[in-house]
Design a protein around this nucleic acid. Structure first.
Lengths: 132, 132
DNA sequence: TTAATATTAAACCAGATGGTTGACAAATAC
DNA sequence: GTATTTGTCAACCATCTGGTTTAATATTAA
């Protein structure tokens, strides 16, 4: 099979696939609680107690989630007294977008059409993930 | 602290944070081998043997990675005889971009400046992830 | 028919994840 | 000073992850 996309692919290869940073980023984003936390932090700084309040889990669990976000550099912590203030650091999300957007042409319709993959769209509807 | 960003945040809230689909997506993307696989599939269909060739791991391991990508709907499989052809399905990556781009304003410079977070940028350089 | 190829399945393993509880440390409030 | 609040740490647990090896299945080639 011809590598018809190769040219375009190389052009869009901006972000390295092998990156421990991306690993940590994607992994941090893979939990709904952590994504929700980021969303809440978009509303301004929160301390751990505030972050924990709406969550149905123990405080240490919340603390661990924050730690994961911190290690992915998505959250920055500022300690004043006994209170730990968390601030969103969205910068790493740009990496996520940059990496993913490298595939943009592949999900855009004109490209699908160009390749005559209309039947794939149909397949996409009813063909389901092989269940374990 | 005032919720200065709240308005903008709600405006950009397009993709649900709590989504098993996003969980699977981000998780699938959290492994360098799988990201590399996607990149290679961007060059056209590959069967498992071809995908496995450059990888330093057993064939069943490769098969499992493909399965993860498949369950995240990032890969579609077409079986002809004994050969399993894998095709990139980039469509779900749009969700990743949409979710992440909801935070774009927060990583853009004008916004950082607005908040007087220039010192944060410096912090970002040398402040490191709290090590366990 | 027999052998080789492509792939899955099953069993196993070490280590990570995501949660719990209980004890502790430090800062603040009374 | 004593009590309360904020948060960490340590130990523990069940489950998931990512890898292995060996065996099995199905298709193609000789």
């Amino acid at each position: 099979m011809v590598d018809k996309y190769r040219g375009a692919t190389i052009l869009n290869y901006m972000v390295k696939d092998r990156s421990a940073g991306l690993d940590r980023l994607f992994r941090a984003l893979a939990h709904p609680v952590r994504r929700t936390m980021l969303r809440r932090l978009a509303g301004g700084e929160r301390n751990l107690t505030e972050l924990a309040k709406p969550l149905k889990m123990s405080f240490p669990a919340v603390s661990k989630h924050v730690r994961v976000l911190e290690q992915a550099r998505l959250v920055q912590r500022r300690v004043t007294g006994r209170v730990h203030w968390c601030r969103l650091n969205a910068a790493p999300l740009k990496q996520v977008v940059d990496w993913s957007a490298g595939f943009r042409e592949f999900w855009e319709a004109r490209f699908q059409a160009l390749d005559g993959l209309l039947e794939e769209m149909k397949q996409q509807e009813d063909a389901h993930v092989r269940q374990k």
